[in-house]
Amino acid sequence: MRQGMRRIRQTSVAFLRAAIVEDMSYPMSLVLSQLGVVVPIFISFFIADLVGESAEVGGDYLTFATVGLAMSSALQSTLQGFGNRLQQIQDRGLFESILVEPISWTWMPLGINQWNMIRGFVNAILLLGLGSVLGAKFDWSGLGASLLLMLAGTAAVSAIGILASSLMVLAKRSQPVVVLYGLAASIFGGALFSLSQLPDWLRPVSYLFPHTYVLNGVRSALMEDPGSFVMTVPQALAGLGITTLVIGGVGLWSFRRSLEIARELGLLSGY
């Protein structure tokens, strides 16, 4: 057991270290991508000025939108990271040399995406801080619950990312699927508007996206008035837990199965 944990830690450190060193070797890209993350908060600042007070979003639109943008940023970073990183590894010819290392193929996608998860997580906190500086009003006593929800949300979107990666192992490209899913999630998750504004018949679709649980759970935790669509922290955690268990199990099984099929068909080296 101890040996197993040690191996998991070593594998995790190996992927994380390599990703950080490589990312740091492109400093300009790193700086510009960070700028790209913070710009929407400034846009929200001006939109909030335009919108004014609204009961639908709990009064202050900037606070509402900052939570939406921060959480969406973290979740999208994790979700798209799986496909982007895997495609990068396949295209560069690194995939096979990683597969011949003595590591579990099932857990490999989590290893290769750790850095994106951490960056997304840190960016979300930075965005909350920036929003606060710009005038967003948070109840910081809910920060612990918010972090817990972010962790649970990361696990849930990782499950979806792994499922998409299993498609990528065989079809070599799955980014369009992930991009479409990400777009849908930004609408149905309610990043910039309250889900109560969705037509009643469309609202149930929201519950299929982990974004819905994270965004609205964190709003309940950090905002005194989360607006007209309320989801409590326990409700959100339960939704994320169920998503992670169901899709995570299917995703991990699918990824391993895809590798086995690709191995048998001789598709592992293609891209």
Partner: peptide, 18 residues
């Protein structure tokens, strides 16, 4: 991994090997 140094490439491989 082209952007990594020779030593960093081997550290990556070595860590994956335990």
């Amino acid at each position: 991994i082209m952007r990594l140094s020779c030593a960093d490439n081997l550290i990556f491989h070595g860590q994956l090997q335990g």
